[in-house]
């Protein structure tokens, strides 16, 4: 049961990360700084939103989990900003 739970999540997460990779691909196609910033903020927001929605669905969302996703989203934001906004 534990293994099945883990595998189900792995599939979901892999699909989610693939989606993020595709969105990041857009950053290479779009040179405009405004649109790049918009996409970077969107990726971070989507990551935060996905994490919160996932834990809400599992009924184990708490303040600590929200903060963990928030800080990871901020790390994603600052790193993508550093890479793509020159």
């Amino acid at each position: 049961m534990f293994f099945g739970y883990f595998l189900r999540h792995l599939g979901q997460f892999a699909a989610f990360i693939l989606t993020i990779i595709l969105i990041i691909g857009l950053l290479y196609l779009i040179g405009d700084t405004f649109w790049r910033l918009t996409i970077i903020f969107a990726i971070s927001a989507v990551y935060l939103g996905f994490g919160l929605a996932h834990h809400q669905e599992e009924k184990n969302l708490n303040f600590s989990t929200i903060l963990e996703y928030l800080f990871i989203a901020l790390i994603i934001l600052i790193t993508l900003y550093s890479i793509f906004i020159r």
């Binding site: 999540h9 990360i17 993020i20 990041i24 994490g51 989990t65 963990e68 990871i72």
Partner: peptide
């Protein structure tokens, strides 16, 4: 209880 490390790891690797 808490966020999933596998998901974070995938993003950090990326």
């Amino acid at each position: 209880q808490g966020s999933h490390s596998v998901l974070h790891a995938g993003l950090i690797l990326l």
